[in-house]
Design a protein around this nucleic acid. Sequence first.
DNA 1: CACTATTCTGAATCATCAG
DNA 2: TCTGATGATTCAGAATAGT
Lengths: 376, 376
Amino acid sequence: MAAVLPLIDLQKQARPHAWMNSIIKGDCVAALEALPDKSVDAIFADPPYNLQLGGTLHRPDQSLVDAVDDDWDQFASFQVYDAFTRAWLLACRRVLKPNGTIWVIGSYHNIFRVGAIMQDLNFWLLNDIVWRKTNPMPNFKGRRFQNAHETMIWASRDAKAKGYTFNYEALKASNDDVQMRSDWLFPICSGGERLKGDDGKKVHPTQKPEALLARIIMSCTKPGDVVLDPFFGSGTTGAVAKRLGRNFVGIEREQDYIDAASARIASVEPLGKTELTVMTGKRAEPRVAFNSLVESGLVKPGQILTDARRRHSAIIRADGTLTSNGDAGSIHRLGAKVQGFDACNGWTFWHYEEAGVLKPIDDLRTIIRNGLPKAD
Amino acid sequence: MAAVLPLIDLQKQARPHAWMNSIIKGDCVAALEALPDKSVDAIFADPPYNLQLGGTLHRPDQSLVDAVDDDWDQFASFQVYDAFTRAWLLACRRVLKPNGTIWVIGSYHNIFRVGAIMQDLNFWLLNDIVWRKTNPMPNFKGRRFQNAHETMIWASRDAKAKGYTFNYEALKASNDDVQMRSDWLFPICSGGERLKGDDGKKVHPTQKPEALLARIIMSCTKPGDVVLDPFFGSGTTGAVAKRLGRNFVGIEREQDYIDAASARIASVEPLGKTELTVMTGKRAEPRVAFNSLVESGLVKPGQILTDARRRHSAIIRADGTLTSNGDAGSIHRLGAKVQGFDACNGWTFWHYEEAGVLKPIDDLRTIIRNGLPKAD
DNA sequence: CACTATTCTGAATCATCAG
DNA sequence: TCTGATGATTCAGAATAGT
């Protein structure tokens, strides 16, 4: 296994690892041994969906399971699929950074087993995301509902991992300024995007749309991050990662897929820095202490602050704290106290008066952040 | 356990069993012993979700979120939850007719375990159905996607059961003559439908909307069939079953819920057959986010948008936001910003050029909408 | 009464940093 | 690893209050 096919170097620096931006040929679990612990920022996995349906069943080593009896076979099928799932998920978990996250896509045939095993392995589920297809295949026999969606599970490495990347502001801004929901609408991969061989036949049976991968990669990674796809197939993950300025690692067993994916990725043109910049919120801004407003003279000791409706008021003290009716504390503590709350964002709660108009002191923080005008 | 509370007899014939159209008080598994083998046509189960909540959660306005922390939703571990799930599913399977089907609803906290166990117990999964909520609770901390759906699993008793009821034509006719998809859109239960006590507080924390149950019961049962709900709660299943001319059996442990459900069901008037077909409302025009245009390739990152008179311009970024002269934001925010306004409809303000002609990006939204299939 | 503004709420695994 | 301080964060719809 593991013939390493180096492809490109997105970052135009010395490639830190031989496996970076390459497709590793081999079985998923074995090939992952080429990667160090905690070396990838995100994983997108599109594992085999259904090993019990089509009559044939393959073990992790691809040997055919010889079905003997219906009942026994069904039990054995799930067992084998579970063992396979457990193995690749464990291998993925080892190479995932502590603050990395993993996506797994599946259908009702396999996603419940996958999800339960992920929980058993201490992955911490963050969301299940529904990919609603605009153009799903009809149900031909009319004996079920049209299977019009697939399910993705998004999870962090464990419950304690709070620092995972989630570009909340960017997703919200791109979604008409309301937060992104767990149900996404995309067409299936078809038309020019669908890879086809010389015979005109599709290269891969389950090629995922680039739009889907784009939203995934934009949501949970930063430019320069490493995205692993342990079931690389036609290389959608790699193509989108490259376009979005991310690094990728693919694992794939079949040479035909590797060839198609390599050519596909080679033709991808990465986007520029301007296009890749994403919206960030206040979280990403540097912290400013209220005291620096006092020190810079934007507010003065003795000055009175009120809430937006003048129901509460407080006096600024020289040390950058507030006092009101015998209570005192930071802008946050005192804001909480006067309202009887546990917590309060003093920056948006307290207002100062300018030309008869009340403005939040957050406006003054913005002045500090943007750089004070030069004064003597 | 098992004090039988007979309620009504929908079919106006001699009640064939004491438990028909009644609520059995007791633990789910034990109470099911009151029912013979293969005695119900359909099951709707809304088991505890096993939410694992950390502390308290406040909205941005500091109000407290009334979380589901009831005793019945507390389980010591996944192992304990799995054992519980296995037990009630097995008991349900015994009383289900060979051609009966079962629905189980859950969230990502529990549905994967439930689904895997159903497969292990030889239930045969027919569909997973997504209930998309029109008005889900937001994600208040901005650390995840808004959890905007719940998942239902629809399964037959075993793989060989081919004769289950599925009212394909009725569903299709009610869905603008296209087959019913696996993603359904309904509001959460609120307003007058939501049961409230004398204190004005909700009777049950997780009351399901009647519209959801109506579609379920209409899809897989016939008038006169028996629908079992092993976690009866506020009795939505019973109320809808009665309205739709089906029989029901409910199992519930808590007397408060039983009392509320009994009164609720007593006040239900069964509908005539004619009225049963007008249950699906007309679907609102789907909202399309600007990012869908980027993701679908109708516009590209790096592309320049202008206003109709080319006085302002902006560059599209990969995350679906715009940037212009150092400012950035959604199509609406940046449109407002460059004009010095508070608000702006970005869809009509921003234009793209095609064959030398400026067209509003709203035209592209129309393309997306026209590509949408009929749903809900 | 009509209309507007405000408040309330829903199955939620919901923060981060310095010390 | 724990504690305390800082300060970031919400959408749709219904109910209620105010004009």
